[in-house]
Design a protein around this nucleic acid. Structure first.
Length: 287
DNA sequence: GCGTCCAGGTCTACC
DNA sequence: GGTAGACCTGGACGC
């Protein structure tokens, strides 16, 4: 089924906007421009495929493409974001015009915000390999065709199981508390997606979850379309130092000042700047 | 084989 | 408000 999306939409730019495509239950075939994911539809799992074809973006799914599948795909591909003012700002700034020309700026999101939040927690203070391992172990424990577990399932696992079997280490109490709060409706994640609420309020609520520090808050903010914060981590600090500060490590405030001209989109400008080389072989498509 | 370091940080205690 | 140290894990590295 064809997917209604902007003319300038490029699947590869969204799929590889950050590392999620490399984490289960996503799979991405760059050669074929094909993104697959496993989602939950009631009690069952469905494999959903998104492909870029000469005719446009096509969606297919085991059991058929339902309204729910289409809504999930739109969420995953961040099709609800309006980037026009950000692209206008990029056009007038040297070194950032490629963003406007390519249409970059949509971030790959998980089918649910719960999955996004747990994955962000799993990226803290560890190698990417360990992040992958934690995600895979959690999915395996769920055992539903490879779908990411529900908050209820995660909440049902003891801290000892999370620590010893899912191998999340010291993150076990953080994950248990978060899943329990969501499963019991004490924490309504839909409120974090409410565009009418101010950034400060959302950040405060995310920050109040144990285990979610400045990096996690701003990284999750990026997936929520709130781009004022940079979400600096060890990898991006090193990258931006090479790119913008002649290899010198500088204070976070210095990096923040550099991207400040982008205002509410500073974090997005920063992220696209440090990941531009990921798309270098595609630049001829939009130059 | 073994010890150390550190990776897409966060929390707590202490000053 | 700033800083030091602890915290799980597992791969890389040096010896």
């Amino acid at each position: 089924m064809p997917l209604d999306c902007p003319k300038s939409f490029r699947l590869d730019l969204v799929a590889r906007s950050h590392g999620w495509y490399d984490l289960a239950p996503f799979e991405y075939d760059r050669e074929e421009r094909r993104l697959t994911m496993v989602i939950l539809a009631g009690e069952r799992s469905k494999k959903v495929t998104v492909e870029e074809t000469p005719q446009g973006i096509e969606v297919s799914a085991t059991g058929g493409v339902t309204r729910n599948v289409l809504a999930t795909v739109r969420r995953v591909l961040d099709l609800g974001s309006d980037l026009s003012s950000f692209h206008a700002a990029c056009r007038s700034r040297e070194g950032f015009d490629w963003i406007a020309r390519s249409g970059a700026g949509r971030m790959l999101r998980a089918p649910t915000l719960f999955e996004d939040a747990v994955k962000v927690l799993f990226t803290t203070n560890c190698s990417w390999g360990l992040t992958r391992s934690m995600v895979e172990n959690l999915i395996e424990s769920f055992g539903r065709g490879g779908a990411f577990p529900t908050p209820e399932h995660v909440a049902s696992l003891s801290e000892a199981t999370l620590r010893k079997e899912i191998r999340v280490g010291y993150r076990a109490p953080y994950l248990a508390k978060f899943a329990s709060a969501v499963a019991s409706n004490r924490l309504d994640l839909a409120r974090w997606e409410d565009r009418d609420r101010p950034d400060e309020e959302i950040e405060k609520e995310i920050r109040s979850q144990p285990g979610f520090g400045p990096y996690a808050v701003q990284t999750l903010g990026r997936l929520l379309g709130r781009h004022a914060g940079l979400g600096l981590d060890s990898w991006s600090r090193k990258k931006v130092a090479e790119l913008r500060f002649k290899g010198r490590r500088v204070k976070d405030q210095r990096i923040e000042r550099f991207y400040q001209p982008f205002g509410e989109f500073a974090g997005l400008a920063f992220w696209l700047d440090v990941t531009r080389d990921w798309h270098a072989d595609s630049e001829k498509l939009w130059s």
